[in-house]
Design a protein around this nucleic acid. Structure first.
Length: 766
DNA sequence: TAACACTTGTTTTTT
DNA sequence: ACAAGTGTTA
């Protein structure tokens, strides 16, 4: 441990060693924040605190996984696995499943993603006969979500004059009623949305003091990463859990708070000290990531914001190159410039592709870069956008799973009742929904007892409905015995999805088929991995509860490939790259026109830019275009005001662009440039389909990840398995990723090990 | 009820 | 430019 602590600088070390009360670690960009968290956990373990007493909350699953791996290196695999470490959403969904009955839920509850939530809001708006142009599902759900993140329950909402007045002024006085109905229908669907996972945890603790005490005792030490991005609901959970022992350490950087649109409240970090009067504050100010020039440029930018905790971030690395600002004539040219520059820099600097990242404000901007990179033969990987689980064909299949696990799930029900088409149309579905509302029961209850509820439907329709009902009922039975993978195969087969999908030979259809296949593969892996780890939870419900909180960053298995990275600035938080391109640096795009109305919004955009800048280790290039293709036409654009916020002495403006317009031919040039962009866009179409297919599939496709040991393993050898102990290899089957060993263990008997996952060492050769 | 053509809104960021 | 929603026809 001593030599571990020697790896830290004095302020990092001080932050790690203080464990007796509340502490706030203000960590500048690149200052070794994750390092401090990791070492601190290792330090606590070393002090004798059992791992299952530690709660560590991260912002993404990926961050949790990486931190676990690092802790495993210093404190051992076993301890790392016993830690309560994960995102707020995943940790508390686990707790809510355990305590579901206390809240009137069943532990099989479904988790709605935002599109499910919006669908439900839309159904309610229709039921209430409200004008869906005034009450648009997106913003209405946004308003509800904001309320929930601020712990404003339906009752509080309906009695809060200020909020009601706000809704009246925005011409949507009925939101409080939509909110109540929304919550009621979530509950009758035995479902929770993302915000419920946090709000219901608060309700659980509020209404069940004994349960709260249990968890207060369990979580002896609490660590929270990215505290600047927590909302009121999350803050309240943490402060209740830490209320008694006050052993809590939060880490964050107010300058990197970029999620207020999701309810994050920067005050949580700014006011932390007043919440915990005995707080000890540590500041990590040395940036180990970036050149002095980048750090100074970022400092000069963030100084323009009014609200912040004072700190002096500095770098002792070399001065480095100035930030290069390049202007392009069009978004299309911007793409070409960036692609060419990356190709050139890679050769000149002897870099690899994975040293490069292109960061943009909106996902929509990725298109142009995909195109130019493909033309330049530069391998790339896009993060974000439509994630695997949000694809239509995947949602359809997953909806069957949801319905099987939780027949009350109304949204899943509506999604699959007529998919694949089985002659149950809108008219019939409406009759079912009406009956459900009338008798105040779920849709499943209605179709399970058609006669009882006297639906006005003809015999043919009735037969089709009962057919559907027994189809699902059979799956439910099956799922009690079989693993998620086995049930999934049956679902695909028996519902006709397989048949429908395989007979569609269009490129889109084939891509859908592949994605479904990929889902099955993922489920198979899930089951095998669980079995390998000696866990019995391999059923559909277990798969769903994990999959619902997965983002596509979490399913990334190809990070080893040499590809450049394309992602939004938001998605880049916490990452670093040698060379960063920040593109589309234009007014109304970055800062976004949406955010500019309020000062706080503009400051958040500036922090977002700060985040983008501080991702770069060596070089940072900023580009903007003078015209941009949006909403179906080319519109003029001008450079972002944020470029003026960086002190000019850290910037170098590139005037010679790739191709400058010929004199006197400006108009013609522009035209051809635009046409060039257009035609290549349209000509891309066919090619693009096969391309989307590739990316979609690649998200979960696996590579051969067998370790040396796994490849070397032979019959007759003795191994020591992490869980099962000592055993002898009886036989080996298959090869590559599917390579398996049958092993006779001394204590637990015969086991099948999937070598891709198995954790063991070879003890003795025969 | 389903398939097709036509119209409309939509684009900020995401657990 | 695109997806989702609306309306018309078979």
């Amino acid at each position: 441990m001593e030599n571990l602590l020697n790896n830290l600088n004095p302020s990092q070390r001080a932050a790690v060693e203080f464990c007796d009360g509340p502490s706030l670690v203000i960590a500048g960009a690149g200052s070794g924040k994750t390092r401090v968290l990791t070492y601190k956990i290792a330090y606590l373990l070393k002090q004798g605190l059992p791992p299952y007493y530690i709660l560590a909350l991260t912002f993404t699953n990926k961050a949790a996984r990486e931190m676990k791996e690092r802790i495993a290196e210093v404190a051992g695999e076993k301890a790392a696995r016993q830690l309560w470490m994960g995102t707020f959403h995943s940790i508390f969904s686990r707790i809510l499943r355990n305590e579901a009955e206390l809240l009137g839920y069943n532990s099989n509850f479904t988790i709605f993603d935002s599109s499910d939530s919006k669908n439900l809001v839309k159904l309610i708006i229709n039921d209430m006969d409200l004008d869906d142009k005034v009450y648009r599902p997106g913003p209405v759900h946004g308003q509800i979500s904001k309320a929930k993140n601020n712990l404003i329950t339906t009752t509080v909402y309906a009695n809060n004059e200020e909020i009601l007045e706000y809704d009246r002024l925005s011409k949507r006085p009925k939101i409080h009623e939509i909110y109540s109905r929304y919550q009621r229908r979530l509950k009758s669907s035995n479902s929770m949305d993302f915000d419920d996972l946090l709000m219901n945890t608060n309700i659980l603790f509020r209404d069940n003091p004994k349960v709260l005490v249990d968890y207060q005792n369990r979580f002896q030490y609490i660590l929270v990463d990215e505290y600047q991005d927590t909302n009121v609901s999350q803050h309240r959970i943490v402060s209740q859990l830490a209320d008694v022992h006050q052993r809590v350490c939060v880490v964050g950087d107010d300058a990197q708070s970029i999620y207020s649109f999701r309810g994050a409240n920067i005050d949580n970090i700014l006011n932390f000290k007043s919440n915990y009067p005995n707080t000890k504050t540590f500041k990590l100010e040395q940036n180990y990531r970036s050149t002095q020039n980048i750090v100074s440029a970022a400092n000069s930018l963030i100084k323009k914001n009014s609200e912040q905790i004072f700190k002096n971030v500095f770098s002792e690395r070399h001065e480095g190159e100035k930030i290069e600002v390049i202007s392009a004539f069009s978004d299309y040219e911007e793409g070409v410039i960036v692609a060419n520059k990356i190709a050139r820099m890679r050769l000149e600097l002897h870099s690899t592709y994975k040293d490069f990242a292109i960061l943009y404000r909106t996902n929509a901007q990725s298109r142009v870069f995909e195109e130019s990179l493909r033309k330049a033969n530069i391998p790339y990987r896009i993060y974000g956008g439509l994630s695997f689980y949000q694809r239509k064909e995947i949602k359809d299949v997953v909806s069957y799973f949801r319905l099987i696990v939780n027949p009350s799930d109304e949204i899943a029900f509506q999604r699959v009742i007529n998919y694949p088409t089985r002659g149950i149309g809108n008219v019939t579905v409406n009759k079912i929904t009406d009956a459900a509302q009338q008798h105040n029961v779920g849709l499943w209850e209605i179709i399970s007892n058609l006669n009882k509820y006297e639906l006005q439907i003809n015999a043919g329709t009735k037969k089709r409905i009962t057919g559907f009902q027994s189809l699902i009922a059979d799956f439910i039975e099956l799922s009690k015995e079989q693993s998620a993978f086995e049930v999934a195969k049956e679902v695909i087969k028996k519902t006709g999805i397989a048949q429908e999908s395989f007979s569609d030979l269009s490129p889109e259809g084939m891509s859908r088929t592949q994605n479904i296949q990929e889902l099955l593969n993922a489920m198979n892996e899930f089951v095998e991995m669980r079995l390998e780890q000696g866990e019995e939870d391999t059923q559909l419900v277990d798969f769903l509860s994990e999959a619902a909180l997965l983002t596509d960053q979490d399913t990334d298995k190809e990070s080893g490939d040499d590809k450049i990275t394309l992602m939004t600035v938001h998605a880049s938080k916490g990452l670093e790259f040698e060379h960063v391109f920040i593109v589309g640096m234009e007014e109304d795009l970055f800062p976004s026109s949406m955010a500019k109305s309020e000062i706080r919004g503009l400051e958040e955009e500036r922090r977002l830019f700060y985040v983008a800048l501080t991702r770069a280790k060596q070089t940072c290039v900023i580009t903007f275009a003078k015209s941009r293709f949006k909403h179906g036409q080319t519109e003029p654009a001008r450079q972002s005001q944020f470029l003026n916020d960086i002190d000019v002495k850290f910037i170098q403006t590139e005037t010679t662009s790739l191709q400058s317009p010929r004199e006197g031919a400006t108009d013609g040039f522009w035209e051809s440039m635009r046409r060039g962009a257009q035609s290549s866009r349209t000509s891309m179409k066919k090619e693009e389909l096969s391309f989307t297919k590739k990316t979609a599939v690649s998200q979960t496709s696996s590579v051969n990840t067998l370790s040396k040991e796994a490849n070397a393993l032979q019959e007759g050898q003795t191994i020591e398995h992490e869980r099962f102990g000592i055993g002898t290899v009886i036989s080996i089957e298959n090869n590559g990723n599917d390579r398996r060993a049958f092993v006779e263990f001394d204590t637990v008997g015969k086991k099948q090990l999937l070598l891709k996952f198995a954790k063991f060492t070879i003890v003795k050769d025969e």
